[in-house]
Protein backbone atom coordinates (compact mmCIF):
# COMPACT_ATOMS: atom_id res chain seq x y z
CA UNK A 1 0.00 0.00 0.00
CA UNK A 2 1.30 3.43 -0.92
CA UNK A 3 -0.04 6.24 1.19
CA UNK A 4 0.28 9.98 0.85
CA UNK A 5 -0.41 11.68 4.15
CA UNK A 6 -1.23 15.39 4.01
CA UNK A 7 1.52 16.13 1.53
CA UNK A 8 2.22 19.52 0.08
CA UNK A 9 4.66 19.71 -2.80
CA UNK A 10 6.16 22.62 -4.63
CA UNK A 11 9.12 24.18 -6.31
CA UNK A 12 11.19 26.87 -4.59
CA UNK A 13 8.66 27.28 -1.84
CA UNK A 14 5.69 27.83 -4.14
CA UNK A 15 3.11 25.17 -3.35
CA UNK A 16 1.72 23.35 -6.37
CA UNK A 17 -0.01 20.56 -4.51
CA UNK A 18 -1.39 21.30 -1.06
CA UNK A 19 -2.47 19.00 1.67
CA UNK A 20 -3.32 15.90 -0.33
CA UNK A 21 -3.98 12.53 1.29
CA UNK A 22 -4.44 9.50 -0.94
CA UNK A 23 -4.05 5.72 -0.72
CA UNK A 24 -3.06 3.47 -3.60
CA UNK A 25 -3.78 -0.25 -3.17
CA UNK A 26 -2.39 -3.35 -4.88
CA UNK A 27 -4.58 -4.81 -7.60
CA UNK A 28 -6.14 -1.43 -8.39
CA UNK A 29 -5.72 1.22 -11.02
CA UNK A 30 -5.90 4.75 -9.68
CA UNK A 31 -5.81 7.59 -12.17
CA UNK A 32 -5.14 11.21 -11.48
CA UNK A 33 -6.98 13.61 -13.75
CA UNK A 34 -7.37 17.35 -13.84
CA UNK A 35 -6.77 20.41 -15.98
CA UNK A 36 -3.31 21.43 -17.19
CA UNK A 37 -1.15 22.90 -14.46
CA UNK A 38 -3.12 21.58 -11.49
CA UNK A 39 -0.17 19.57 -10.22
CA UNK A 40 -1.00 16.08 -11.51
CA UNK A 41 2.56 15.20 -12.49
CA UNK A 42 3.94 16.90 -9.40
CA UNK A 43 1.70 14.78 -7.22
CA UNK A 44 2.69 11.61 -9.06
CA UNK A 45 6.39 12.41 -8.81
CA UNK A 46 6.20 12.99 -5.10
CA UNK A 47 4.32 9.71 -4.69
CA UNK A 48 7.32 8.09 -6.43
CA UNK A 49 9.76 10.00 -4.22
CA UNK A 50 11.24 11.85 -7.18
CA UNK A 51 10.25 15.07 -5.45
CA UNK A 52 10.33 15.39 -1.71
CA UNK A 53 7.24 16.95 -0.19
CA UNK A 54 7.45 20.29 1.61
CA UNK A 55 5.32 18.81 4.36
CA UNK A 56 3.49 15.57 5.05
CA UNK A 57 4.78 12.06 4.45
CA UNK A 58 4.84 9.28 1.91
CA UNK A 59 4.48 5.79 3.37
CA UNK A 60 5.18 2.64 1.36
CA UNK A 61 4.19 -0.73 2.83
CA UNK A 62 4.17 0.68 6.35
CA UNK A 63 7.59 2.34 6.16
CA UNK A 64 8.24 6.01 5.60
CA UNK A 65 9.95 7.09 2.40
CA UNK A 66 13.06 8.22 4.29
CA UNK A 67 13.67 4.70 5.57
CA UNK A 68 14.26 3.43 2.04
CA UNK A 69 17.47 3.87 0.09
CA UNK A 70 16.96 4.95 -3.50
CA UNK A 71 17.76 1.47 -4.66
CA UNK A 72 15.38 -0.26 -2.25
CA UNK A 73 12.66 2.15 -3.31
CA UNK A 74 13.33 1.47 -6.99
CA UNK A 75 12.87 -2.24 -6.38
CA UNK A 76 9.29 -1.48 -5.34
CA UNK A 77 8.21 1.50 -7.42
CA UNK A 78 8.72 1.99 -11.14
CA UNK A 79 8.05 5.31 -12.82
CA UNK A 80 7.38 6.01 -16.47
CA UNK A 81 8.46 9.56 -17.10
CA UNK A 82 6.71 11.87 -19.50
CA UNK A 83 9.82 13.34 -21.04
CA UNK A 84 13.00 11.50 -21.83
CA UNK A 85 16.42 12.62 -22.99
CA UNK A 86 17.15 11.52 -26.52
CA UNK A 87 19.57 8.79 -25.59
CA UNK A 88 21.30 6.98 -28.40
CA UNK A 89 21.18 3.48 -26.92
CA UNK A 90 19.45 0.44 -28.36
CA UNK A 91 15.98 -0.69 -27.32
CA UNK A 92 17.44 -3.81 -25.75
CA UNK A 93 19.95 -1.95 -23.62
CA UNK A 94 17.32 0.55 -22.51
CA UNK A 95 15.01 -2.23 -21.35
CA UNK A 96 17.95 -3.95 -19.63
CA UNK A 97 18.45 -0.77 -17.59
CA UNK A 98 15.18 -1.65 -15.88
CA UNK A 99 17.14 -4.29 -14.00
CA UNK A 100 19.58 -1.72 -12.61
CA UNK A 101 18.13 -1.51 -9.07
CA UNK A 102 18.33 -5.28 -8.73
CA UNK A 103 21.98 -5.62 -9.73
CA UNK A 104 24.76 -6.21 -7.24
CA UNK A 105 28.05 -4.34 -6.98
CA UNK A 106 29.55 -5.98 -10.05
CA UNK A 107 26.46 -4.94 -12.08
CA UNK A 108 26.38 -8.34 -13.77
CA UNK A 109 22.98 -9.52 -14.98
CA UNK A 110 22.00 -13.09 -14.12
CA UNK A 111 19.60 -15.44 -15.87
CA UNK A 112 16.59 -14.06 -14.02
CA UNK A 113 17.47 -10.55 -15.19
CA UNK A 114 17.78 -11.69 -18.80
CA UNK A 115 14.49 -13.54 -18.55
CA UNK A 116 12.61 -10.50 -17.26
CA UNK A 117 14.11 -8.28 -19.94
CA UNK A 118 13.09 -10.76 -22.63
CA UNK A 119 9.60 -11.00 -21.19
CA UNK A 120 9.22 -7.22 -21.12
CA UNK A 121 10.37 -6.96 -24.75
CA UNK A 122 7.94 -9.71 -25.68
CA UNK A 123 5.02 -8.11 -23.83
CA UNK A 124 5.53 -4.79 -25.55
CA UNK A 125 6.10 -6.45 -28.93
CA UNK A 126 9.56 -4.95 -29.29
CA UNK A 127 11.49 -8.06 -30.31
CA UNK A 128 12.03 -6.94 -33.87
CA UNK A 129 13.33 -3.54 -32.76
CA UNK A 130 15.71 -4.73 -30.07
CA UNK A 131 18.89 -3.64 -31.84
CA UNK A 132 17.51 -0.36 -33.15
CA UNK A 133 18.70 2.89 -31.65
CA UNK A 134 16.09 4.87 -29.73
CA UNK A 135 16.72 7.76 -32.09
CA UNK A 136 15.68 5.71 -35.08
CA UNK A 137 12.25 4.55 -33.94
CA UNK A 138 8.90 6.31 -33.79
CA UNK A 139 7.53 8.14 -30.76
CA UNK A 140 5.04 5.37 -30.02
CA UNK A 141 7.75 2.72 -30.20
CA UNK A 142 9.95 4.77 -27.92
CA UNK A 143 7.17 5.10 -25.37
CA UNK A 144 6.69 1.33 -25.52
CA UNK A 145 10.42 0.84 -24.98
CA UNK A 146 10.36 3.00 -21.85
CA UNK A 147 7.29 1.16 -20.67
CA UNK A 148 9.11 -2.13 -21.24
CA UNK A 149 11.95 -0.79 -19.11
CA UNK A 150 9.48 -0.11 -16.29
CA UNK A 151 8.08 -3.63 -16.70
CA UNK A 152 11.58 -5.14 -16.55
CA UNK A 153 12.03 -3.31 -13.27
CA UNK A 154 9.45 -5.82 -12.02
CA UNK A 155 8.01 -3.75 -9.20
CA UNK A 156 4.72 -4.15 -7.31
CA UNK A 157 3.97 -0.45 -7.86
CA UNK A 158 4.02 1.19 -11.28
CA UNK A 159 3.45 4.90 -11.79
CA UNK A 160 2.89 6.29 -15.26
CA UNK A 161 2.89 9.93 -16.26
CA UNK A 162 0.55 10.24 -19.24
CA UNK A 163 1.42 6.85 -20.70
CA UNK A 164 -0.83 7.20 -23.75
CA UNK A 165 -0.77 10.88 -24.64
CA UNK A 166 0.37 11.71 -28.20
CA UNK A 167 0.11 8.08 -29.25
CA UNK A 168 -2.11 6.73 -31.99
CA UNK A 169 -5.29 4.95 -31.12
CA UNK A 170 -3.92 1.42 -31.58
CA UNK A 171 -1.01 2.01 -29.20
CA UNK A 172 -3.33 3.76 -26.74
CA UNK A 173 -5.64 0.76 -26.62
CA UNK A 174 -2.64 -1.54 -26.26
CA UNK A 175 -1.36 0.39 -23.27
CA UNK A 176 -4.77 0.50 -21.58
CA UNK A 177 -5.07 -3.23 -22.07
CA UNK A 178 -1.62 -3.71 -20.55
CA UNK A 179 -2.62 -1.67 -17.50
CA UNK A 180 -5.59 -3.97 -16.92
CA UNK A 181 -3.39 -7.06 -17.27
CA UNK A 182 -0.90 -5.67 -14.76
CA UNK A 183 -3.72 -4.90 -12.38
CA UNK A 184 -4.93 -8.49 -12.58
CA UNK A 185 -1.39 -9.60 -11.73
CA UNK A 186 -1.90 -7.77 -8.46
CA UNK A 187 0.18 -4.70 -9.22
CA UNK A 188 -0.72 -1.26 -8.01
CA UNK A 189 -1.06 1.09 -10.96
CA UNK A 190 -1.05 4.86 -10.58
CA UNK A 191 -1.44 6.90 -13.74
CA UNK A 192 -1.82 10.50 -14.73
CA UNK A 193 -4.15 10.64 -17.73
CA UNK A 194 -5.43 13.32 -20.02
CA UNK A 195 -8.03 11.29 -21.83
CA UNK A 196 -11.09 11.23 -19.55
CA UNK A 197 -12.74 8.44 -21.50
CA UNK A 198 -9.79 6.12 -20.96
CA UNK A 199 -9.55 7.08 -17.32
CA UNK A 200 -13.23 6.33 -16.71
CA UNK A 201 -12.88 3.06 -18.56
CA UNK A 202 -9.89 1.48 -16.79
CA UNK A 203 -9.77 3.02 -13.33
CA UNK A 204 -10.87 1.58 -10.04
CA UNK A 205 -10.52 4.97 -8.43
CA UNK A 206 -10.15 8.39 -9.94
CA UNK A 207 -8.61 11.33 -8.21
CA UNK A 208 -9.75 14.60 -9.71
CA UNK A 209 -7.34 17.40 -8.92
CA UNK A 210 -8.32 21.02 -9.08
CA UNK A 211 -6.01 23.87 -8.11
CA UNK A 212 -3.57 21.55 -6.35
CA UNK A 213 -6.26 20.01 -4.17
CA UNK A 214 -8.27 16.82 -4.45
CA UNK A 215 -11.66 17.90 -5.74
CA UNK A 216 -13.09 14.39 -5.79
CA UNK A 217 -11.72 10.95 -5.06
CA UNK A 218 -14.20 8.31 -6.17
CA UNK A 219 -14.92 5.32 -8.36
CA UNK A 220 -15.73 6.17 -11.97
CA UNK A 221 -19.44 5.59 -11.42
CA UNK A 222 -19.55 7.83 -8.37
CA UNK A 223 -17.52 10.46 -10.14
CA UNK A 224 -19.97 10.57 -13.02
CA UNK A 225 -22.88 10.82 -10.66
CA UNK A 226 -21.29 13.68 -8.70
CA UNK A 227 -20.97 15.81 -11.88
CA UNK A 228 -17.56 16.97 -10.71
CA UNK A 229 -16.11 16.49 -14.20
CA UNK A 230 -18.72 18.82 -15.65
CA UNK A 231 -17.89 21.40 -13.03
CA UNK A 232 -14.09 21.28 -13.25
CA UNK A 233 -13.65 20.88 -17.01
CA UNK A 234 -16.74 22.86 -17.91
CA UNK A 235 -18.04 20.18 -20.28
CA UNK A 236 -21.11 18.06 -20.66
CA UNK A 237 -20.73 14.33 -20.29
CA UNK A 238 -22.96 11.86 -22.15
CA UNK A 239 -22.92 8.14 -21.56
CA UNK A 240 -23.28 5.93 -24.61
CA UNK A 241 -23.37 2.17 -24.57
CA UNK A 242 -20.48 0.55 -26.39
CA UNK A 243 -20.01 -3.08 -27.23
CA UNK A 244 -17.92 -3.69 -24.12
CA UNK A 245 -19.73 -1.57 -21.59
CA UNK A 246 -20.44 2.15 -21.34
CA UNK A 247 -18.33 4.79 -23.09
CA UNK A 248 -18.40 8.55 -22.54
CA UNK A 249 -18.64 11.55 -24.77
CA UNK A 250 -17.65 15.04 -23.69
CA UNK A 251 -18.89 18.14 -25.37
Amino acid sequence: MLELKNISVGYRGREVVCDVSLTFRPGEITTIIGKNGTGKSTLLKSACSLLSPLSGSVVLDGKGQQEYTRRQWAKKVAFLSQDHLDSNCTVHSLVSHGRYPHLGFSKKRDEQDHLLVERALETMGLNALRHKSLLRISGGERQKAYLAMALAQDTPYIALDEPATYLDLAVQREILHLLKTLKHQGKCIIAVMHDLGSALEVSDHICLLDGGKVATYATPAELLRSEAIERVFNVECTEVSGRRGPRYLFS
Binding site: T69, A74, S81, K107
Partner: peptide, 20 residues
Protein backbone atom coordinates in the same frame (compact mmCIF):
# COMPACT_ATOMS: atom_id res chain seq x y z
CA UNK B 1 30.81 3.27 -16.30
CA UNK B 2 27.47 1.53 -15.74
CA UNK B 3 26.15 4.25 -13.46
CA UNK B 4 26.98 6.85 -16.09
CA UNK B 5 24.90 4.99 -18.65
CA UNK B 6 21.95 5.24 -16.29
CA UNK B 7 22.64 8.91 -15.63
CA UNK B 8 22.67 9.54 -19.38
CA UNK B 9 18.96 8.64 -19.47
CA UNK B 10 18.14 11.87 -17.66
CA UNK B 11 17.82 12.71 -14.00
CA UNK B 12 14.22 11.68 -13.58
CA UNK B 13 14.62 8.26 -15.16
CA UNK B 14 17.89 7.66 -13.35
CA UNK B 15 16.31 8.50 -9.99
CA UNK B 16 13.40 6.20 -10.62
CA UNK B 17 15.85 3.41 -11.40
CA UNK B 18 17.42 3.88 -8.00
CA UNK B 19 20.57 5.77 -8.94
CA UNK B 20 21.83 8.33 -6.43
Amino acid sequence: GKDLNILALGDEVALSLGLE
